[in-house]
Simulated assay, not measured.
Amino acid sequence: MFEQFLWVIYPYICGVIFIVGHIFRYRHDKFNWTAKSSEFIEKKQLMIGSILFHVGIIPVIMGHVSGLGIPKEWMRAIGVNDHLYHLGAVYIGGFFGFVTFAGMLILTTRRFTIKNVRKLSSVSDLIVNTLLLFIICLGMYATLVTNAVQPDFDYRTSISVWFRDLLAFHPDPALMRDVPISFQLHILSGFLIFALWPFTRLVHVWSVPLNYVGRSYILYRKNRTHQQ
C-alpha cells in the first residue's frame, strides 16, 4: 500500500496541485505573479549564481527529458549504444549538473547570509531554494556516486519505464522497488517541488518577456529649462 502511494498516488496528487494551483493563482493572484527581484540589494552574487544556474539547468532538463522519455531501443536505433549513452549521462550530465549546483549554492547562500536579502525573502523563497539545492545534490550523487557503486543499475529499464507509464495513466509501482534510494529521493523531492511551484516565485518561469525582443526602444530626454 505504501509503495502504491509513493509511486502512483503521490505523483498524481503533485501533478493535480501543479495544474490546479497555477490556474487558481493566475485567476485570483495574478498581480503577485512575480520573481520579486532583490537585485537592488545585492547584484554580483545574484548575477553569477543566476547565470551558472540557468546555463546548467537547461541541458540538465533536456537530459532528463531524453533519459526518461526516449526508450533505450530508440537510442540504439539511431546509433547511440548503451556505453555511449552512459558516458554522455555521466560526464556531460555531470558537468552541467555541477554548473547548476554551483549556481544554486551561490543563490541559496546569498539568500540566507545577506541580511537584507533574507528580510526581503518569504518563507516559501527559503524553502524553494533549500529544496532545489537538495534535489540537485541528490541528482549529482545519484549520477556520480550511485552509478559508480552500482554500475549494473540501469534507470532506463526501471525509472524511465515507470515514468512513461505514469504519463500513460497505468504506472507499475513494482518497477521502482529495487531503485537505489538516492534516485528514489531525487524523484520524490522533484515531484514535491512541482506541487509547491504554483505557490512560489517559480511561477515567473512562465512569464518570459518575449515581447521585449520586438518592442520599440524607450527614449529618455532631459527636461531643460531656460534661464530668463
Rank of each mutant, 00 (worst) to 15 (best):
R76V: 00
F53V: 04
I51Y: 02
G67C: 03
G49N: 12
A77I: 07
L52D: 09
H64N: 12
R76M: 04
G69W: 09
K72L: 00
G79W: 06
I58Y: 08
M47K: 15
G49Q: 14
P71F: 04
G69C: 06
M47D: 15
P59S: 10
I48T: 08
S66L: 15
I58K: 02
I51R: 11
I57A: 10
W74C: 00
G67F: 01
I70S: 05
E73I: 00
E73L: 01
R76N: 14
L52T: 06
P71A: 10
Q45A: 12
M75Y: 01
V65N: 09
L52E: 12
G63I: 10
M47W: 10
V55E: 12
L46N: 15
Q45W: 10
V60E: 07
G67L: 03
N81E: 04
V55C: 08
I57E: 13
G63L: 09
I48M: 13
G56R: 10
M75D: 02
S66M: 13
L68Y: 03
E73R: 00
E73D: 03
S50P: 14
P59N: 09
V65C: 10
G69R: 12
G63H: 09
K72G: 00
A77K: 12
I51A: 05
E73M: 03
H54M: 07
S50Y: 12
H64T: 05
Q45I: 06
V55Q: 05
V55A: 08
I58F: 06
M75K: 02
M47G: 04
E73N: 04
I58G: 08
H54C: 10
M47T: 15
E73P: 00
K72N: 02
F53N: 12
V60Y: 01
G79T: 10
P71L: 11
L68T: 03
L52K: 03
V60F: 01
R76L: 03
S50L: 09
I51V: 13
G63R: 06
V80S: 00
S50W: 13
S50V: 07
V55M: 09
W74K: 02
R76C: 00
S66I: 15
I78M: 12
